[in-house]
């Protein structure tokens, strides 16, 4: 790489009549830089796409991906006719949408409070602290949740009991589990998500605020008429992008925290794929489901990206 790069220069004699070739030669150092990454892409990003063919095959480990026999759409049929199909889809969407609907406003409110507060040191400290959970793995988070929510020793239940209530096994109770999943995710990501809104707020022209102040607008009015309109584009864009990946409901989180009593509300497509594919050695079925999710996800991203481009003039691609 370094050899080719070292001789790469801007001004280079080009072959007459071949402008493109000249440009390519001129940029050869960049192609050299791209060589390894593209090789990596071919193997680790496109390899899986090639392997996805086993969704239409009956995968036999000894025969490998290519020699296993074709079975058409049988695996998809098995999944669609599974009694858990709708439940998996519903759980995935409910948890995912819940995180978006609660997480996004929380992040915006936190950003607003940070933006408006003039207690600088305190503000900075709050910011630092609220970032923290973002850097914790779901293993650690699971541990924290256990020590917080366990029926006998958990803090929350201690308080409930002190107030004369009955303890609740939050992580095993289907009526509580989705709430816990959503709230723990909001707790973890709230501070981090606020960054982007806070940045958008600092980008608003200070002249607007000054003018509003002169005209006697209250702080609330300033937020209502200046700050929020100023960041609405960012909010909508983030929301649309998130909607595009709505089928990712948080595999690691669920994987760590779920158990049989809450399967009915906690089992999502990804965890089902893991259990069927890896634990039950049904690779083709699991791949078919993964593929189904991928295709659906692609359609969603495409649709929401189009919406975003049309109405907001900003898009992912």
């Amino acid at each position: 790489m370094s050899n080719t790069a070292a001789i790469g220069k801007t001004v280079k004699p080009t072959r007459p009549g071949s402008k493109t070739w000249g440009a390519i030669v001129q940029h050869k150092a960049f192609y050299a830089m791209l060589f390894l990454p593209l090789a990596y892409f071919a193997i680790f990003k496109y390899g899986p796409l090639v392997n996805a063919q086993i969704a239409f095959k009956d995968f036999m480990a000894l025969d490998g991906v290519w020699k296993s026999p074709w079975v058409g759409f049988k695996n998809f049929g098995t999944f669609f006719s599974s009694i858990y199909f709708w439940e998996l889809l519903r759980n995935t969407l409910v948890l995912s949408l819940g995180k978006l609907l609660i997480g996004l406003p929380m992040a915006v409110i936190l950003a607003l409070a940070l933006n408006e507060s003039s207690a600088n040191k305190f503000k900075h400290f709050v910011q630092t602290v609220t970032y923290l959970p973002h850097f914790l793995s779901w293993v650690v988070m699971y541990g924290v949740l256990l020590l917080l929510l366990s029926p006998d020793e958990g803090l929350v239940n201690d308080i409930i009991k002190a107030l004369g209530g009955q303890e609740v096994s939050f992580l095993q109770d289907p009526s509580w589990y989705p709430t816990i999943v959503i709230l723990s995710d909001v707790w973890k990501e709230m501070g981090w998500s606020a960054i982007i809104y806070l940045a958008a707020m600092t980008g608003i022209d200070p002249g607007l605020y000054e003018a509003a102040e002169v005209e006697g607008a209250t702080r609330l009015q300033r937020i209502r008429y200046i700050t929020l309109p100023g960041i609405v584009d960012v909010i909508v864009t983030i929301a649309l992008l998130r909607l595009g990946t709505i089928l990712d409901a948080g595999f690691h989180q669920i994987f760590m925290t779920y158990s049989v009593p809450v399967y009915s509300v906690g089992d999502i497509i990804d965890t089902w794929v893991y259990r069927q594919g890896v634990l039950d050695f049904q690779f083709s079925l699991a791949t078919a489901v993964g593929l189904f999710k991928g295709v659906l996800g692609l359609c969603l991203v495409w649709a929401f990206n189009k919406l975003s481009r049309r109405y907001l003039d900003s898009s992912l691609f």
Partner: peptide, 22 residues
């Protein structure tokens, strides 16, 4: 059976729900 995963899940999950009064 090939659908052992779905089957045992249905079997267990409902029993637990009955027992938990859910």
């Amino acid at each position: 059976p090939s659908n052992v995963n779905d089957f045992t899940r249905y079997y267990n999950e409902n029993l637990v729900k009955f027992a938990l009064g859910q």
